[in-house]
């Protein structure tokens, strides 16, 4: 009886001590999360409903004023449209390209590591530094691309300074940047497909490489493709550095993208409140893409 009476509080003290230790160990991570992620996000969300400008004292709550302004802001709408076009070009381009290359590399007997390294190079290289290389490659008069086109008798456009082609050129660079990353993911996905399924397909009488791809490779790559799709869309929505280095959104806002507008509003015009509102829109797009992945597509690519 007395044993029990003593044992119980002791046990409780031990449990409390353990909980305390757990919290103490979690504390650095919790603080980092609060300070670096949650607080800034909440602050941005709050600022999006103000007219705060850097350097001015005080601010006013203006409710949905910033969002109303966006609907009339030609620059913002243009950047939204440009971003969607950019994503619409880069996502299929880099995914299809990576898939075709991955299948070719997988089918080949030699040079797997070499090709993987070659195509992965853009991912590890600094995109700002690479941008200057692209500036030279795409130069209208001295650039090798237009020189090659001239050799074919085609007058190449001024890629980065014509509003008709600038988005195309940036998307080309974007595909080049994303291709290697996607390629490595697809190669990993391909090695995970059981060899026996290909053997079964052969015995079942699959008549062509295309049919084999349709019956085995494509469905079993589903989870990989979904991940690649999501990550590429999020990465290309975030396009910023090539635009900042090569075109600054020009000519005539033809390459103005969402993140560049956000940067300009916040750090060139110091309209922090408006910039925060654009950030929320950006955040909304990214969250929507992630929701699409986890809620809708996930169910269709995992066959359990």
């Amino acid at each position: 009886m007395s044993d029990l009476a003593i044992a119980a509080p002791r046990f409780r003290a031990a449990a409390a001590g353990e909980a305390l230790a757990a919290w103490a160990l979690c504390l650095p991570a919790v603080i980092a999360y609060l300070l670096m992620l949650l607080l800034p996000t909440l602050a941005t969300a709050a600022l999006a409903f103000t007219d705060y400008e850097l350097g001015l004292d005080g601010f006013r709550w203006i409710g949905l004023g910033n969002f109303a302004e966006m609907l009339d802001d030609r620059g913002f709408l243009q950047s939204l449209r440009n971003t969607l076009i950019y994503v619409g070009l880069v996502t299929p381009g880099s995914i299809l390209g990576a898939l075709v290359l991955a299948l070719a590399i997988e089918a080949g007997t030699r040079g797997r590591t070499l090709f993987r390294a070659v195509f992965f190079l853009p991912v590890v290289s600094l995109s700002v530094a690479m941008a200057s290389a692209w500036q030279y490659l795409l130069h209208p008069t001295i650039g090798p691309l237009n020189a090659a086109l001239r050799g074919l008798g085609i007058a190449g456009p001024a890629w980065l300074s014509s509003s008709d082609t600038v988005l195309l050129a940036l998307a080309g660079i974007g595909i080049w940047e994303n291709l290697g990353f996607n390629l490595v993911l697809f190669l990993a996905g391909l090695t995970a497909i059981p060899r026996e399924l290909y053997a079964a397909a052969a015995v079942d009488g699959v008549p062509s490489a295309w049919e084999r791809f349709r019956l085995v490779t494509w469905p079993l790559l589903g989870p990989t493709t979904l991940f690649v799709l999501t990550i590429t869309m999020i990465r290309s929505v975030r396009v910023f550095d090539t635009v900042a280095v090569l075109t600054q959104g020009g000519p005539n806002k033809a390459s103005q993208v969402l993140l560049y507008t956000l940067y300009e509003e916040g750090f060139t015009y110091f309209r922090i409140g408006y910039s925060a509102a654009i950030t929320l829109v950006f955040l909304g797009i990214v969250l929507a893409l992630m929701w699409l992945q986890t809620r809708i597509l996930d169910k269709r690519v995992h066959y359990a």
Binding site: P194, E196, L197, A199, A200, A201, A202, V203, D204, G205, V206, P207, L215, V216, P219, L220, G222, Y303
Partner: peptide, 28 residues
């Protein structure tokens, strides 16, 4: 393999995971 008129049962069964039972059986 497809022209040999043989059928094989694999150790791992090698069923197509994205197809239903009926679709799996129908493949050949």
């Amino acid at each position: 393999a497809g022209e040999r008129d043989v059928a094989m049962v694999f150790q791992s069964y090698a069923l197509y995971p994205h197809l239903t039972v009926a679709e799996n059986i129908a493949v050949p």
